[in-house]
Write a protein that binds this DNA or RNA. Sequence first.
DNA 1: GATCGAATCAAACGGATGTTTCAAACGATT
DNA 2: AATCGTTTGAAACATCCGTTTGATTCGATC
Lengths: 198, 198
Amino acid sequence: MTAGEVFARRGFRDSTVREISTLAGANLAAVNYHFGDKKGLYHAVIACGHEAAGPMPADEAAGISDPREALRVYCRAFLRRILDHRKPEWHSKLMAREMAEPTEALDEMVKMMIRPHWERLGAIVGAILGPSASPRLVRLATQSITSQMVFYAHARPVLDRLFPAEEWSPASIERRGEDVAAFSLAALDSLRRVGGKA
Amino acid sequence: MTAGEVFARRGFRDSTVREISTLAGANLAAVNYHFGDKKGLYHAVIACGHEAAGPMPADEAAGISDPREALRVYCRAFLRRILDHRKPEWHSKLMAREMAEPTEALDEMVKMMIRPHWERLGAIVGAILGPSASPRLVRLATQSITSQMVFYAHARPVLDRLFPAEEWSPASIERRGEDVAAFSLAALDSLRRVGGKA
DNA sequence: GATCGAATCAAACGGATGTTTCAAACGATT
DNA sequence: AATCGTTTGAAACATCCGTTTGATTCGATC
């Protein structure tokens, strides 16, 4: 769908049905015929993007028993799904936009993607921190790790301005996943040693 | 400025000059008279919000020599500036919006706020990690810490849906700052021990 | 090849938005 | 009190958008 790129670039309101249809080589009225209205097209784009964005990180880290290794695999898969420009990169942009400016579509996204992610990553973090860790600490650590990854989707324009020379090849994306995992594992190690003080 | 609230809630394009002017009790044409056009009003709002958002975290953590304590103070001040609803909370929303959908205003924001933040926090992180840490490690750690805090501004709608019962009082905001600092200090401690391996 | 539903197309409609216009009110200065 | 630059006010303007309409083409089925 070329509509996804336009929605991701311009936002829902700024995207015009005219631009989308001409860019897609279709007629203006085709949108309303096939999707009812503009909002219907938007929902279809989000659903399509969710499937086209590749496997969920939770699936890629499914069979790994060692939680520390699982975290590394999970972080790499997450960033791959978000950043790899061989996949429809507009999907993560659309998600970032939904978070800053929620519509009804956000509830669907939370149910389909975000909550599953949170539970899977929370389980990994809980396994690393050990049974003595409080649920609150697990939740906070899960959030800290998530934020480091989502940051790449939310603040990419800022990063491009701060560090214009940065590389975004598939290889360096993998390394970023390793870096997030390393930072987080370092934190979890210390926190585990100190115990569930929070 | 009531215009800031509207811009933060609806976004630039979705905000209508009519709604802003009626909500502000002013006439429709007043906007174009005082600010030239809608975009001029937007820039004025951003500049005004920057000043009204209170002191920069870098200033609040200026006189502290112990870098670990400086990090704690800095994190608390940062989240206070972002989350405290007694201050114009629309400023952080506007920033989040600019990052997802950059306009010319983002360059100004990077120069005025983001890069100073990055340099100050980077200095604190560098002091904690010690002179043996590579610049790359310092940069990554600074980014990880920043992301944990910015997450609250970017993903707040998601957090509200994931954990509806969460509290956002000034006191709990302070504690969130402590939590971010604790997680980050734990990571920095481990990384310092391992050395600049990255 | 005739038929009928689905899909496409150009054109137009109704509404909303940013901007302009021009007259009226204001306020300091003389 | 008269004057003149500044600010407000209501109304209109020009444009663009999402949607609808009705005619036309397409494609499978009999």
